[in-house]
């Protein structure tokens, strides 16, 4: 069924192609260029080699992100399950409730959490009113992880919830029919069948966690340097663009690698579901 295409149909994608080349491919090439050159524009591996001195920052960032992602999954999965089991009319409301925080600026959410947890904040004033010792939270690693969990939890819940609503109820009935108790059904049927949602949730929490700088600035009180903070600082001065580009490049590769691994899992699960 070969159809003659009109000029419009043939030319329609051209502006986008040009835009993509200029502003998506182009910038990435510049990252590559800066990562492998020095201030005089000469080729060098020095920037990459220099990264070893940032090893502990990478380590802390990865640890924080992994912990935050794990907590998001532990809190988020039961939440998605509870949402999916609610009445359809309630589910609509719940979905709006879940999505509203995703649309509110991360700055506002982080800031509101910080003002709540701050030494002079509401939590501590309540503690004081109850005659308890104030709890110094802002500036600890725990607060940074809590900030990540608080900010990114909806990104974990949404894809899991979506994959649960797509789940055919007959699978659950079949499992019950074959003798699974509710708990066994959860672990043997629901969990494997919602794995694609879990993997996409993990990516959606892990990627922003590992690249954040505002959360660590606000809730870490400047005590914790994460990859994001480091990159952000390098780009305040022209002279450190090259090292900043190198760190960005490595982080990007790190993320692409982990997303690819998770993506492969997710795809396989989906294929399995189809077959």
């Amino acid at each position: 069924m070969k159809k003659r295409l009109s000029f419009l149909e043939r030319a329609a994608a051209v502006p986008h192609l040009v835009w993509t080349l200029l502003f998506i491919i182009g910038p990435l090439l510049f990252v590559l260029y800066f990562a492998f050159t020095d201030n005089d524009g000469a080729f060098t591996f020095a920037n990459i080699a220099h990264l070893s001195s940032y090893a502990h920052i990478f380590f802390v960032s990865i640890c924080f992100s992994v912990v935050a992602t794990a907590f998001c999954l532990l809190i988020g999965y039961p939440l998605a399950l509870a949402m999916a089991r609610a009445k359809p009319s309630t589910q609509k409301l719940l979905l709006v409730l879940l999505m509203l925080p995703m649309w509110i600026s991360l700055l506002i959410r982080t800031y509101s959490l910080m003002t709540l947890l701050d030494n002079g904040g509401l939590v501590n004033s309540l503690l004081r009113a109850m005659g308890l010792a104030p709890w110094h939270m802002v500036g600890t690693g725990g607060a940074v992880v809590l900030g990540m969990i608080y900010d990114f939890l909806p990104y974990m819940v949404l894809p899991i919830y979506t994959s649960m609503t797509k789940l055919d109820k007959r699978y659950l009935e079949a499992a019950a029919d074959l003798g699974c108790n509710p708990c066994q059904t959860l672990f043997r049927v629901t969990l494997p069948l919602t794995a694609p949602g879990i993997f996409s949730g993990i990516t959606m929490v892990f990627v922003p966690s590992i690249s954040t700088f505002y959360i660590s600035q606000k809730l870490g009180g400047g005590n914790f340097d994460l990859i994001g903070d480091t990159i952000e600082r390098q780009f305040q001065y022209t002279s450190t663009y090259h090292i900043g580009a190198a760190i960005s490049l490595v982080m990007m590769l790190l993320i692409i690698a982990s997303v690819a691994i998770f993506g492969r899992f997710a795809d396989k699960e989906e294929e399995g579901m189809l077959a």
Partner: peptide, 13 residues
């Protein structure tokens, strides 16, 4: 891509 990489790469460009 993480936003920070998109931002940084465009800034470099």
């Amino acid at each position: 891509n993480p936003d920070i990489v998109t931002g940084v790469s465009m800034m470099l460009l």
